[in-house]
Nucleic acid binder design. Structure first.
Ligand SMILES: [Mn+2]
Ligand SMILES: [Mn+2]
Ligand SMILES: [Zn+2]
Ligand SMILES: [Zn+2]
Lengths: 133, 133
DNA sequence: ATGTATATGAGAACAGATCTCACGAGGAGT
DNA sequence: ACTCCTCGTGAGATCTGTTCTCATATACAT
């Protein structure tokens, strides 16, 4: 689904996307980010925003979370640590979290003869600033 | 993203969709199911397959799992118990699983001032029958 | 049997994401 | 600084999964 491929050159567009992503507090969609770039005068094609966001993700600089109908992106805070996200449904703000024990599903999988290749854990809620509304 | 709405009447099409879904062992896409129905001579419009699958999900008879690029459906095996799925990436077969402890994320959320509204946990791998390939 | 609310079918419409390809620009080598 | 080749970009087309529209058909309460 997601187009793959790290990027090999440093372009103005890549910098712009990286900066815009970094300046967003929470998870944002590619289209949001494109709109923000436009708003601040940075003309970057939507396709390029997608390409660079995916590249950043491939390079470990960004996290992607797939809601049912779109992908959201955010600068990764702890690139070296396996983690999941606790995400505010209202504003996209997120906290990177690590379960105390991720071993349970390896055990359950083994019980059923399954081999685990990957897992996805996402927690949605309201952040402190979005409790009302 | 997913169209909502339980259904109030018992139609031939709904029965057909329910049967086809039940006769599929693993998670299948709406389009797969539509193809299968066609194959066995049941002419049900694709839109109706979508409508009824969503209705079945609303009614608790079906589970939906969202891979990044499509939704997969399966008859729910234990409608009354909260659970998640361990899914074979190759054939769609799945086991309904329940973590030993789902309390950890409520605690973490509280630590960060978040209120939890929902969570999503999915484990992907290979089922016993799909180990090779 | 009638009447009315609801489901269906066929195709149009939609939205997110990716692809195409001609053109522009990074940057290694000189 | 100049060249050259490779890779990135822009604009718009295209793809794909899903939902919508609305005229017609059907369930089912009365
Ligand atoms: Mn991260
Ligand atoms: Mn289930
Ligand atoms: Zn928030
Ligand atoms: Zn399998």
């Amino acid at each position: 689904m997601t187009q793959a491929g790290k990027t090999r050159r440093n372009t103005a567009q890549k910098d712009a996307v990286r900066r815009a992503l970094a300046s967003a507090e929470g998870f944002v969609s590619a289209q949001d980010l494109h709109r923000r770039l436009d708003g601040e005068g940075s003309r970057v094609a939507l396709a390029t925003v997608y390409r660079q966001l995916n590249a950043l993700a491939d390079e470990g600089e960004a996290d992607i979370v797939s809601t049912g109908d779109e992908q959201l992106f955010r600068t990764c805070r702890q690139p070296d640590r396996h983690h999941h996200h606790l995400i505010c449904e209202n504003c996209g703000n997120a906290v990177e979290v690590t379960p105390d024990d991720e071993g349970w599903f390896a055990r359950i999988a083994a019980d059923h003869g399954y081999t685990v290749t990957r897992h996805s854990i996402e927690i949605y809620g309201r952040c402190p600033r979005c409790q009302n509304g």
